[in-house]
């Protein structure tokens, strides 16, 4: 399949990446090459095969009891926050004050 620059830009938006023009073109070419290689997967008929998401299928995703454990490191985590105000993480405003909060 052919990957267009617009498609690359759309994926970059999904991935929250900003690509410069030359970078976008380079990645477009790389993706094109990789997807051509990946296209070989079409050679085998796997329609009746269940996907395998994890090699330890029978053991994975076991629910555990929801028990609160004191980690003792919550203040330490706050130390890692790039910008904060006391115990609050600061960010740019992301809810438009004029909207109903869903916009």
């Amino acid at each position: 399949m052919r990957i267009s620059s617009d498609q690359v830009e759309r994926i970059a938006q999904l991935a929250r990446l900003h690509l410069e023009d030359d970078e976008r073109e380079r990645i477009r070419g790389d993706l094109q090459g990789i997807l051509e290689h990946v296209g070989r997967l079409d050679e085998i008929d796997v329609d009746e095969i269940d996907p395998m998401h994890n090699p330890a299928e029978s053991d994975a995703n076991v629910l555990r009891d929801d028990i609160v454990v004191e980690s003792g490191v919550s203040d330490g985590f706050l130390e890692s926050v790039p910008r904060r105000d006391d115990r609050y993480v600061t960010t740019p405003r992301f809810v438009d004050p004029g909207s109903d909060g869903h916009g």
């Binding site: 990946v38 997967l41 079409d42 085998i44 796997v46 095969i49 269940d50 996907p51 395998m52 998401h53 090699p55």
Partner: peptide, 11 residues
């Protein structure tokens, strides 16, 4: 999804 199916064939 296709890759995950192929993964099972290989495994």
């Amino acid at each position: 999804l296709r890759a995950a199916r192929v993964r099972r064939v290989i495994a």
